[in-house]
Design a protein around this nucleic acid. Structure first.
Lengths: 311, 311
DNA sequence: CACCCCATGTGCAAAAATGCACAGATATTT
DNA sequence: AAATATCTGTGCATTTTTGCACATGGGGTG
């Protein structure tokens, strides 16, 4: 401690400030200390680590290569520290981070967040909308909405809602390429779909399940929104969640009686936090909102002769 | 800083030691300071965070609920700090973390690591063998060996080797259940395979590609080693990489002329580090080792009428 | 060119942190 | 029961850290 043994984390805070400000004096103002203190902490850190972290210039400090490597790690620590600062301190006012797939996040949750925040002024909801569920175990998210049910008992999991997917096209596309009358016609069309290596779950492998040859997937994108846009622009067909495709008017279903996929969103929390008031409340809201929106997720389809479900 | 403003990360180090040791005196011995110092740092931290982190007992300190929450975050910081301590310090002696799938990691790389370490005494190779490739972008690994090629240009990717998979059975199983003579016979057997929700890449979805109904997958495990074990025990059939199944004698191929899958391992590094001496050297070793072991990865199969490759 | 501003770096005084000695409480051992 | 070991907590002396004043150097402006 204090330089006699091991790495002093406080020195890392000084390091971060200098890296950010680019000068001792800037960091000092930021931290509310004397610049001489900053210089000495940096020197102490360099001694402890036996590394030169900054080049000294008359107009400031510049990170060395070693310094840059260190910065990445210290920034990661900072992210943890920021969660820590909120997590243990306040109690009821704080941040809940939701990790959700883009479709659910952007098309369902985002329009409803405003009302939630209004009803709970001390609550901050941070939504991470990505293609892959972030790790609950690393505390990157407090609550995840995923497509698959995690194994083991570390998490509390419940079924949130089923949702349906259809093949969609724009009317313009169908006018130009002719109507699709039977499943066999699909081979004559191009599709939008996920980039292959980003299909991290079989539940997202819609096209293979419908029987679309991967060579037909000429428009590959990691974003469901972009896939929808391509379909809307009349470039191709696409398999889209109904609540996504039908959130704006214009797209028509292709062979809905014959081809329809069913998937499930799961609500996942860490087992030790499901009862906390913030998270518990948010879970209730999510349950209620999805229950109220069942017509969105599960629109009536006439008679699907082929409803494919992964298990 | 020092309690006048914001969270002092050094106090978190003290907190961690007390959480671990369960007493001021234990933490003090661990840190090489006086226990009174430890008490005062904890008190300072509690004041800064306005939280009671420990219950005081005559025989030690016990984490409160708030303290437990804080501990998770601080342990995450510690993990980053440990990487930091190695990353920027040494230079050429250091750790390279490889992330590889279990098959490649355990059956190919592990037996060869010893020789590598002997030839490079200052190099430590840490091998993370999991079911999913850990994140290079989060610096969780320096080098990944994966099944799919990442998109974008953030990483440097090269094809390491192809490898073949066959259906395997134990002779005992075939004696009890009769020989498999044609593809249609496969429907009468049970298989070992991956747990559904852990099939994170279509490249791992062997069974579906071979045409095995998911109801036949009666033995599901996230570990290829366990799947191999089940096949060896005569419980079922399984689709296994040849270099895995044939690393020990005993298993026989089923319909190898007719059914054979081909996959590829990719060598992935961060673009900005491929030239570093440690990593560059390790990449060369990996290339050489896999090239020398082509007979392992790509054993001759007689005449595969159906060789399935994902793209 | 002179002046001003802003940067880093040195040495000493002041403030903060830590070590040390001691006290009290509890649990375990003799 | 008494002795011993181990724990936490208080107050004062010592050590370490930080602030302050000053010096030097570089860049920009009038």
């Amino acid at each position: 401690m204090h330089g006699r043994r091991g790495l002093d984390w406080r020195d890392l805070q000084y390091f971060l400030a200098v890296s950010r400000g680019g000068a001792l004096s800037v960091a000092a103002r930021e931290l509310g200390v004397e610049h001489t203190t900053v210089a000495r902490r940096i020197q102490s850190l360099e001694q402890t680590m036996d590394a030169t972290l900054f080049e000294r210039h008359p107009r400031g400090y510049r990170l060395t290569r070693q310094g840059e490597q260190l910065l990445a790690g210290v920034e990661a620590m900072e992210r943890e520290a920021q969660e820590v600062a909120f997590g243990a301190g306040g109690g009821l006012s704080g941040t809940v981070r939701i990790s959700a797939l883009e479709g659910f996040g952007n098309f369902f949750l985002a329009p409803r967040i405003g009302a939630l925040l209004e009803a709970n002024p001390d609550l901050t909801v941070e939504m991470v909308t990505i293609q892959q569920i972030v790790s609950l175990s690393r505390r990157q998210a407090d609550l995840a909405i995923g497509l698959t049910r995690p194994s083991g008992d570390r998490f509390h999991t419940e079924e949130l809602t089923d949702y349906r997917l259809f093949i969609y096209a724009s009317p313009d596309y169908l006018r130009r390429h002719g109507p699709v009358r039977r499943r066999g016609d699909l081979a004559d069309h191009i599709f939008a779909g996920y980039v292959d290596e980003l299909v991290f779950s079989p539940a997202l492998d819609y096209l293979a399940e419908v029987g679309i040859d991967s060579r037909q997937v000429r428009i590959q994108n990691s974003s469901i929104q972009a896939q929808k846009a391509a379909v809307q622009a009349g470039l191709c067909l696409g398999v889209l969640p109904a609540f996504v495709a039908e959130s704006t008017p214009g797209l028509v279903r292709v062979l809905p009686e014959e081809i329809s996929l069913l998937r499930t969103y799961w609500l996942i929390t860490r087992g030790d936090e499901a009862g906390s008031s913030r998270l518990g409340h948010l879970c209730r809201v999510l349950r209620n909102e999805t229950r109220a929106a069942q017509a969105l997720f599960l629109p009536s389809r006439n008679t699907a002769a082929c409803e494919i479900r992964p298990d």
